[in-house]
Write a protein that binds this DNA or RNA. Sequence first.
DNA 1: TTGACAATACGAAACTCTTCGTATATCTTT
DNA 2: AAAGATATACGAAGAGTTTCGTATTGTCAA
Lengths: 125, 125
Amino acid sequence: MSRYKPTDAEMEILHILWEKGSSSVREINDILNHRREVGYTTTLKLLQIMFEKGLARRDSGAKTHFYTAAVREHDTKNHLISDFVNVAFRGSAMSLVMQALGNSETSKEELDELKDLISKLEQNS
Amino acid sequence: MSRYKPTDAEMEILHILWEKGSSSVREINDILNHRREVGYTTTLKLLQIMFEKGLARRDSGAKTHFYTAAVREHDTKNHLISDFVNVAFRGSAMSLVMQALGNSETSKEELDELKDLISKLEQNS
DNA sequence: TTGACAATACGAAACTCTTCGTATATCTTT
DNA sequence: AAAGATATACGAAGAGTTTCGTATTGTCAA
């Protein structure tokens, strides 16, 4: 049961699948083309590879195949964060959090939300 | 003045350069070999490519070349965070921060540090 | 100055990823 | 059932990365 780390292109597709649920290649390709031009067979190939990797499931009942995400959004992002923290921050998640916060525009509401989370973390320690 | 996004292997070397400063290929290779086995010429090639990309400078005065980082640590990490947020969190830095926090072991001291940062951010808004 | 040693330069192999052209299969419509 | 449209399958090209073998260059000591 080996896990594949999604590439950037695969993440773009996973986001579509997480949001839209079961989708045909054409639907996915149409959405991708809102942002940039991608050939239909390119998207098809990506989906086929994601299927082989176990990142996507597919329902091949009819002529048109329908794909869904085979990995959970939260789990996948946790894996990505973990890798990213190791590569870019030598394992220190806090360094990432601090720099990401300092670097981003943050609204009052978001800061409040963050403080709530911190309170919860403090209780559980 | 185009910027290259460092690969994982390049980040490992950049971290060494940021920490140690000017280093020979042999020194860098020795440090890399603490973690995993890497051939000397592999490390050499990586440094050469990083030099071509503008990620590293080199002082070729003597027989042995000495390399230093040509990009700033904070800037580089900001770029990486920005890309990562776009790919994995559809541009929402806050989502990343919240999930990274929730996912990591965080000490009291770190949480205090984080609260200080939040206070500062609240003042500047 | 020549031999030994260490460093660099070069090039190619293996791998992964993205892209797309072309072939094949399937459905629909008339 | 045949024609046309739409989908999938297959394969290969091209780019980038990592790896390392081998050749070349440079240094120092005897």
